[in-house]
Structure formats: structure tokens, C-alpha cells
Write a protein that binds this DNA or RNA. Structure first.
Lengths: 206, 206
DNA sequence: CCAAAATTTAAACATTTGTTTAATTTTTCC
DNA sequence: GGAAAAATTAAACAAATGTTTAAATTTTGG
């Protein structure tokens, strides 16, 4: 019957680490087995195949990826506060999971995941009521007449890209990791100011 | 002696196409040979190895990647005009080479290129005098007191990311390719306004 | 036209790949 | 304690990988 639960978890953790850094095509199941300190048969014993294991890791990553958004959207803050909090939270989240944006985008780019993104991921976001809050603010004249898709693109661009471009940016400017992280902090503040200034109409007296 | 020059070029073109879409690890040399309509021995006859061929393609891509910047920076426009032109030119460039940002960042992310980015790439940019023009504008009080690294991060984020996130974005919003490209156009205009508004100090009468 | 050089091909190579088999060890539960 | 179940291992499998060899074809230049 049941034995040591942690073996399955150890494999998942190792697979996550290896897939995240090297990508699906960039690693072998033996790489993962070595990371576990075991052999390849055990991986397939628990997860049937490399592909199945990858899908599991990918879905977990996608879930993490969206979770920090949902947490912010679910609060009862004003739209402006939500935007500011989102940027803050996403930055500190990706500071701890810097590989995540590249992993997600790369996997989707090469269609490593057959399933179209399950509504399981999107629905929770819709359920926060953020879309309605956004349209309401637009109707109230609090924010610009811009589509939520464009706001999303702005936010994602400025929050995800810096973590994906670490190597390019460091080489481009010839800077250290420390300097890069300093720049990252500054970037966050700029983006916050930039986006709120753009989106929210200055109301000298609403 | 010399024969049909176009064979070597055909291989490079095929390799570029395959590497760009599937990545170094995601394809085999036989994939490339099939794209050429030939066999694997010919690839190594011309390029010695898969790695050597990849490095060649990568360097060409990096060169393309930076070329459109250099063209804009070399002109004798004002800084504001350069920023606006840069955004326009980069967008139309990536519209025709949408795989490029992902290819470059992915390759650098997984260190598929051993060489630290050769100064051959960066020097031409420095030689345009754009850095001096930027510092001059800052000294003149025309623009904010912000590092050029942060401006670069802003520009790159907003120009590169949308092309990298096509699949994520389409799935996220459940939109068609046509709608996505519409959003892209709008994004470009937003980014132009956003960045120039942020960077350039409004001078009612300079 | 013809020998030498360059190009192209098919086949073989040694490894590595993902997966499976079968045997062994460990755990479970009466 | 011991049989059944679960977990783990080593070994083998066929297929795919990057590269090389050697032979065949085509081009070159006198």
C-alpha cells in the first residue's frame, strides 16, 4: 500500500528544478533521475512518461504563475491600489521564482503543452470580479478608455520581461548581478508610476 | 573549387528557420537536413557541427536584433524623435521577425552560446553616440534623472515581450491572431505615449 | 576531354534517448 | 512472522542522436 509519500514529491521537485532551468528538450529523464539520486525506471513508475511528468510540472507552474494575480484581485481594494499591489507582489514573487516567466512562455511558444490553457486557470481570475471593476472604473471616467487586454499587455511586459532578459541585459550593459537587481528595483518603481500615471485620469476634483 | 554558392546559403536559411522555431535542443540535424532537402553529412561538410552551425545562426540573429536599433541611433534626430522612431521601427521589424526575441532570450537563458556577447555587437551602438546624447539631454533638464539602463529595460520590455507572449496572451484572453495583432498596434501607440510622457519633461516654454 | 578538386550521397559509428522488463528489496497488514 | 503489495533497482530495448567514413557524382580548369 502507501509507503513513503516523499519519493513522489522528491521526483516532482527535481523535475521542476531541471525542467525550469533546461527546458523540456534540454534535459533527459536521466538528468532528473540523477537530481533525485535514483534511476529512470522510478520516474516512469510514478509518472508514466517524461511528457506526463512535464505536463504536471507545467500545470503547477502555470498555477503558481496566476496565483499571485488572483490573490491581489480578490481583495477589496480600489483599482488603483490593486494595480500598485499587483506590481509589488508580482515583483517579489518573481524575485523568488525568476525562472517562471521564461519557463511558461517558452513552453507555450514551442507548444510543449498540447492542451489549450484550461479554463481552470482563467476562471478564477474572472471570478475575482476584476473585469467588472475595470469596466466600472472606465464608465466612471476614473481611468482611460483603453481595453483591459492592453493594460494586461503593459503589466505583463513590464513585470515578466525583466526576469526573462537577465542574461541579455547583464551582457548588454556589462553589469553584475547585484547591479542588475538594483536596476530591477528601480524598474518596479518606474513601472508603477508609469502605468498608474497613464491609466488613472488625474482628478483635481472628481 | 567553388561551385554553387547557394547550397551553403540554403543550409543557413533552413537552419535559421528550424532553430528559430524549435530551438537548439528542440530539433535534430536531420530536421534541418530535411528542410534543406538533403542529408546530414552535408551540414557537417559545410559547418563542422550542429553547435558551430547554431553559433553562426545565433550571431546572425543577434546582429539583426541590434541592427534596427543602430539604424535609428545613427540618425541626427532629437532624442525624443529617436525614441519614437525606435519604437516604430522595432515594432515593424519584429512584425516580420516575430520569433527573434524569444530565440535570442531563450538561447542566452540556457547559455546555448558560450561566448559572452562580443563587443562586436555592443560597440556599434556605443559608436552612434546615443549614450552621450542621452546624458546631455539629462544635463539639459530635457529628460528625467533616470539611468539609461532603466530606459533600456522599459523599451525592451514593452517592445520585445508582446512578441514573445503571443501564445500566452491569445490563450489568456481567448482571442484570434487578428485580434492579437490589432492589440499589438494599439500597444505600440500606448507605449510610445507612455514612455515619452514619462521620460521627457514637459517644457511649457523651455 | 580529362584528371583533380569540390560537392553530394548513403551507410555506418558510437552515444544517448525514452521506455519497458524482470528481478530484488522494502513495506503493509492480518 | 509471513504472504501480498508496493517500491526500487539494474539491465535491456528499440529508436533517435551527432558525427564520420568512404564511395559516387559533379564541377573546375587546363
Amino acid at each position: 500500500m502507501k509507503r513513503d509519500q516523499s519519493t513522489e514529491e522528491k521526483i516532482k521537485a527535481a523535475a521542476k528544478k531541471v525542467f525550469m532551468t533546461k527546458g523540456f528538450d534540454g534535459c533527459s529523464v536521466r538528468d532528473i533521475a540523477k537530481e533525485v539520486g535514483s534511476n529512470v525506471a522510478l520516474l516512469n513508475y510514478y509518472f508514466r512518461s517524461k511528457e506526463k511528468l512535464f505536463e504536471l510540472i507545467f500545470e503547477g507552474a502555470m498555477s503558481d504563475f496566476l496565483q499571485s494575480m488572483i490573490a491581489v484581485f480578490s481583495s477589496d481594494l480600489s483599482l488603483k491600489e490593486k494595480v500598485e499591489q499587483l506590481i509589488d507582489k508580482e515583483f517579489s514573487f518573481f524575485m523568488e521564482h525568476p525562472e517562471l516567466p521564461m519557463f511558461i512562455l517558452q513552453s507555450l511558444h514551442q507548444n510543449k503543452t498540447n492542451a489549450p490553457m484550461p479554463s481552470q486557470f482563467l476562471e478564477p481570475i474572472a471570478n475575482t470580479g476584476i473585469f467588472e471593476q475595470f469596466e466600472q472604473a472606465k464608465a466612471n471616467g476614473e481611468i482611460r478608455d483603453v481595453s483591459i487586454r492592453n493594460v494586461t499587455m503593459l503589466l505583463m511586459s513590464n513585470v515578466h520581461y525583466p526576469f526573462m532578459s537577465k542574461n541579455l541585459t547583464k551582457q548588454f550593459h556589462g553589469i553584475s548581478t547585484d547591479q542588475f537587481e538594483e536596476d530591477l528595483k528601480k524598474h518596479k518603481e518606474i513601472v508603477k508610476e508609469l502605468i498608474t500615471n497613464y491609466l488613472f485620469i488625474s482628478n483635481p476634483k472628481a
